[in-house]
Computed example of a mutant assay.
Amino acid sequence: MRSHLLRETTSDKVFDILNVIIMILVLIIVGYPMYFVVIASISDPMLVAKGEVILFPRNFITIGYKRLFNYPQILTGYKNTTIYTLVGTVIGVFLTISSGYALSRKDLLGRRFITLLFVFTLFFNGGLIPTYLLVKKLGLIDTFWAMIIPSAVGVFNVIIAKSFYEGSWVDELSDSAMIDGCGDLRFFFQIVLPLSSPLIAVMTLFYAVGKWNSFFDGLIYLRTPTKYPLQLVLRDILITGQLMLGGSMQDVGSITERLRLSELLKYSIMIVSSLPILIFYPFVQKYFTKGIMLGAIKG
């Protein structure tokens, strides 16, 4: 018996060691590219191109960030994207939670048919042209709501919310609340929402990341540069290479200097566009796995 326990203990230690090694390798594979982008954005691009920047920055410079934030549209893009993200996330999370809860209720008339309509859109959609024509018909072209309404709800997220509520505490609490005279709306706002914090955190992360990274809706529906989201502004800078300092690029003389600046901008743009989400993620990370697992298990 003792030797058997000893073998189990040894095997557990071996497993733990292998597990730690694998996790470290995964961390390096996942984390190093982001770390490299950070050090490359503050290093001499010529040394980066030669492969001399590996673990630490070389010839520390911040001209890429200075030129980037001197571009007049950057702050406007940040403001627009922040507003689009906040409003879009609030609307998306509320519609997703309410839709998922409603579809999970067994007393909903036509529940299976409505669910089928939701699921149908996962496999078939009208496509870009019909969607554009619809948005245009609704008068949303070049408006704030063009960034919110067309992508307000993700059907996959609704399915997760529906699975989260099905067969859980909802039925028991609902019956008790109804006996005490609690209506459906009061039950949803005062009982369901406070008990749905893991799901709300996960949905908030999904929608916030999607809205923050969204540029295609802006590219298709927006015409006025002052309404562009940050991603569209950064895309224009990255693709066209027309970063302006005080309205012109006349201070950049040689082709070599232009290429050098272009490389710095490439890495700086990656950091500028990703940093807010990287800061936001740790605050909801603890709910992420819990919310997804609850939705999967209850389904």
Rank of each mutant, 00 (worst) to 15 (best):
Arg111Lys: 14
Ile200Gly: 04
Ile149Asn: 00
Tyr101Trp: 10
Asp236Pro: 00
Asp107Asn: 09
Ala296Pro: 07
Asn59Lys: 15
Leu205Asn: 02
Leu134His: 00
Phe94Ser: 11
Thr81Val: 10
Ile239Phe: 13
Val38Trp: 06
Ile279Gln: 12
Lys79Pro: 01
Ile279Asp: 06
Met244Ser: 10
Gly51Phe: 12
Thr96Cys: 15
Leu205Met: 14
Ser174Lys: 13
Arg7Pro: 01
Thr256Lys: 08
Ser254Leu: 05
Phe206Gly: 01
Ile42Asp: 03
Arg258Gln: 12
Ile97Thr: 11
Thr224Trp: 03
Ile269Asp: 00
Lys50Met: 12
Val87Arg: 05
Val252Asp: 04
Ala161Leu: 03
Pro276His: 05
Tyr221Cys: 07
Val87Trp: 07
Ser168Leu: 08
Arg105Leu: 10
Ile83Thr: 08
Gly88Ala: 11
Lys290Pro: 01
Gly295Phe: 08
Ile149Gln: 01
Ser168Gln: 13
Gly183Cys: 04
Tyr228Gly: 04
Ile22Gly: 02
Trp145Glu: 02
Tyr132Lys: 03
Ile277Gly: 02
Ser99Pro: 00
Tyr267Arg: 03
Ile61Asp: 11
Ile149Gly: 01
Val20His: 11
Phe56Met: 14
Gly126Ile: 11
Thr76Val: 15
Ser104Arg: 07
Tyr281Arg: 09
Tyr267Pro: 00
Val14Arg: 13
Arg186Glu: 09
Leu27Cys: 11
Glu257Cys: 02
Trp212Ala: 02
Asn70Leu: 15
Val87Cys: 04
Gly210Ser: 10
Ser176Glu: 06
Arg105Gly: 04
Cys182Gly: 00
Ile21Thr: 11
Gly167Trp: 02
Val30Ala: 07
Leu222Glu: 04
Ser174Gly: 09
Pro72Trp: 14
Arg260Asp: 09
Phe280Gln: 06
Ile39Met: 02
Asn19Lys: 15
Ala152Trp: 00
Ala208Trp: 08
Ala102Asp: 00
Leu294Trp: 05
Ser262Asp: 08
Gly183Val: 02
Pro225Lys: 14
Leu275Asp: 05
